[in-house]
């Protein structure tokens, strides 16, 4: 019996849900049945893979290859969503957004592995989003690599998901494309953040959600970040530490440091723990990383760190 793909499963669930659902849109206006299944990873690989000294594209390729290749995650015909940080209208050297060469190399690797479509998206903060996609260098780089780019700027781009393990968040929204993707790759840049000390992989997922403000106004932004990560799990986290932002994050301008590393893993906590060390911090000093570890999302001390 052919295994049911994630997309087929979701389509079946959505169809059944639509048939049963009466009453229209949820409070936040997302169309479709409330309470889509959380987004869980399919493959788990022990340890972290760190490539350095080669520049952004070659580091990305080397780290993925060390992990066993993109084929471990992406199969022929898959729909892949890549979520970098494209929140700000900043050029790549400002280290406020993910390096476009990291993103485009991932697009190439996914296409080579057989992906039918690779969509790169974010919920862009600066306006207008089209200008941001261009100015960050993401649009050009991705399109040249054979991918597509999208700014998820409409509420209709989002669907409600349940967060059964959440403490503060019991439900929230997620970009529909991520929910529908066969493979979801989270590609943050490592930088400081005035509210959460650092923003790495876990915090980058906040950009998959429609309403950021409600998290800021909640009892604990850090708990919201960890709650959301229990339901929105990337198959792979690729941390861009080509150049990191040391001050005035998340947007800068601020002091930067050239680190020339790309860190890859399936354990989102382990990736963030490694990222924290780049700033001279213990992972426990960053509340949302600690909370995520306590909620069982991963390890603060990965068993294997393979440097290539």
């Amino acid at each position: 019996m052919k295994p049911v793909s994630r997309r087929e499963f979701l389509e079946a669930v959505a169809g059944l849900g639509a048939a049963l659902f009466i009453g229209g849109c949820s409070k936040n206006g997302q169309a479709g049945p409330k309470g889509s299944v959380p987004r869980m990873p399919k493959v788990s690989v022990d340890g972290l893979f760190v490539a350095s000294g080669r520049g952004p594209a070659k580091n990305t390729r080397a780290a993925i290859e060390a992990m066993g290749g993109m084929g471990k995650f992406v199969k022929k015909g898959d729909f892949v969503v890549i979520k970098p940080n494209i929140a700000w209208n900043r050029p790549p050297d400002a280290a406020a957004t993910t390096n476009p060469e990291v993103v485009s190399e991932l697009v190439r690797l996914c296409k080579s592995a057989g992906a039918s479509k690779v969509l790169v998206l974010d919920h862009v903060i600066d306006r207008p989003a089209e200008v941001v996609l261009g100015f960050t260098g993401i649009k050009d780089a991705v399109e040249k690599a054979g991918g597509e780019v999208k700014a998820a700027q409409q509420e209709s781009d989002y669907r409600t998901i349940e967060i059964p393990k959440g403490k503060l968040l019991k439900s929230d929204t997620l970009v529909r494309d991520i929910l529908e993707a066969d493979v979801f790759i989270n590609v943050p840049i490592a930088k400081t953040h005035s509210a959460t000390r650092l923003t790495l992989g876990l915090k980058n997922l906040m950009g998959c959600n429609w309403d950021r403000q409600s998290w800021h106004q909640s009892a604990s932004l850090e708990q919201c970040i960890a709650d959301y990560a229990t339901a929105v799990r990337a198959d792979l986290t690729v941390l861009d530490a080509t150049r990191i932002l040391l001050t005035n994050g998340p947007k800068g301008p601020g002091r930067t440091k050239d680190v020339d590393k790309v860190i890859v893993g399936t354990d989102p906590v382990a990736v963030d723990a490694y990222g924290a060390a780049l700033f001279g911090l213990q992972p426990k000093e960053v509340s949302h990383i600690l909370i995520a570890a306590q909620m069982g999302l991963g390890s603060l001390n990965p068993s294997v760190v393979k440097t290539v």
Binding site: A87, I125, D126, R127, P128, V131, H193, S194, A195, T196, T199, M206, R212, Q213, H216, Q217, L221, N248, G249, P250, K251
Partner: peptide, 24 residues
């Protein structure tokens, strides 16, 4: 002027300009 780039925000809505950094 870059069309569509104007943002005005007050109080907690400053997150529209600074995201999580607005509290600073």
């Amino acid at each position: 002027l870059v069309p569509g780039s104007l943002i005005y925000a007050k109080g907690d809505d400053l997150s529209k300009i600074y995201d999580g950094g607005y509290e600073l």
